[in-house]
Amino acid sequence: MRADRRTGAGGWVLRGVVVTYVVLLVAWPTGLVFKRAFQDGIDTFFSSLTSPDVQHALALTVTVAGWAVVINLVFGVAISLLLVRYRFPGRRILSVLIDVPLSVSPVVVGLALVLVYNARDGWFGTTLATWGFQVIFSTPGMIMATVFVALPLVVREVTPVLEEIGTDQEQAARSLGAGGFQTFWRITLPGIRWAIVYGLVLAVARSIGEFGAVKIVSGNITGQSQTATLAVEQTYQNFDHQAAYAIAALLAFTAMLCLIVVAILRPKEQH
């Protein structure tokens, strides 16, 4: 409705500047990776994804990201409910600390987990090792690192929606005799359904993309503990640029698909 304002010379310049900036910084380079991945034809693209090491890396990424997303779903919803619906000492500190993973360097995350969970001298790692449970340089550690970095995403999507829908319906359900679980399942959950979906999609994108933290906790051994992002680095540094571009294009495609899903779903929420 404000569109009727005519675009003056200043407006055109501003539009030109920001579009150029975004094209040069994001759109063009991203497009180029896709072009490089497919420049030798679609067969080359697929054949560079089928080497055993790359296949293993892709499978590992799916496993790690899958577990991380499920764990973040359960705890993300639980923590959101606790933060919004309950008052307890330290609630505000918890709500601030939940955001910490968003701005901590992935390298610091990796180091932090290694310090606590390594089998040689970790705070808990040595005990866990005597129980025969290895965290660092193994899949559980990689899942932990991935859960850590994607942790706030579900919470950040769900808490504002929970705050907005309020407790009227929940109280009505309870006064009509619904139990706690029934109220959650029939009243609360449908209300936050889309927020959970957004949070999940964002968590998927973040989880498949994690690099630094996983590099440190995994040991980064080709064909064993190497995820897809680590394989991109490895193949590129080994001058297998075709494979690097192919894996990167696959990861970028998946991430952008997540983005588009969110973009398409989001307007529905506003009605």
Binding site: V33, F211, A255
Partner: peptide, 12 residues
């Protein structure tokens, strides 16, 4: 497109 940097893995 503005959101692409959020979505892309950092190594990518």
């Amino acid at each position: 497109v503005v959101d692409v940097p959020f979505a892309l893995p950092t190594i990518v």
